[in-house]
Amino acid sequence: MSTTPPLLRASGVTMRFGGLTAVDGVDLAVRENEIVGLIGPNGAGKTTFFNCLTGLYVPTEGAVLFAGETLPPKPARVTRAGVARTFQNIRLFANMSALENVIVGRHTRTRAGLLSALAHGPRYRREERESRERARELLDFVGLGGQADLLARSLSYGAQRRLEIARALASEPRLLLLDEPTAGMNPQETAETEELVRSVRARGVAVLVIEHDMRFIMNLCDRVAVLVQGTKLTEGAPGEVQADERVVEAYLGAPDDEEEPTPRSPQNRERTA
């Protein structure tokens, strides 16, 4: 174990919805340059935990420290601080082009307001040009360079998942949260995603990934935490966790595996928020 303070430290994070405790006192740390897996049966509270980290939910109890500072429960501030995420059910801006999606990801790294947009001054134009260049570079990085001008909704399913990663990376995060990035993918696409996550780490971005595909987790992760019914069951090296009988039991003894089927359709965005 290294002695540098972790990039992310969640301690005692608890999220209650009325009588239901979806996340119950979870501690988790992610260090720089680490890929950490978060596994557990459906309904275990993994996505809710992500929502607590990114400010979409305000945790009932507990604290989240990022780079030594408390993360405010405001999504915009979290993104600016350097945490980006993808969604379990793809949430792209369906009627914007792939390039525009990524440029929106740069929102917190750009400044232009209404007046500078109207004036179109040199500073504004430079910022726009840079955004465009960075976005193109990211599209190339995830392998979508040739589809920059297609609308997100007309991309293939796998491409949509990769576009979500590119959009998240556009905010220049130090930590990327991936929520089931290979759900609904075929083995080849899964292998490509594995490669992509590795090269994300090579860019100096730490990754916390929720995933059901055990092979993916075992190949990729430095450490794995297991969440069962809102509580952290165990945490350790992938081999140890896989051998842990309690983990196997939790998965096998979870008849509610079908409870939250991963939507396959790329067009599952909600119309009304």
Binding site: T54, L56, P75, A76, T79, A84, R85, F87, R91, L92, F93, A94, N95, M96, V104, G105, H107, T108, R167, S171, R269, E270, A273
Partner: peptide
């Protein structure tokens, strides 16, 4: 297009 995703961005 998607208020939640926009917020997360």
């Amino acid at each position: 297009e998607d208020e939640k995703a926009a917020t997360a961005m």
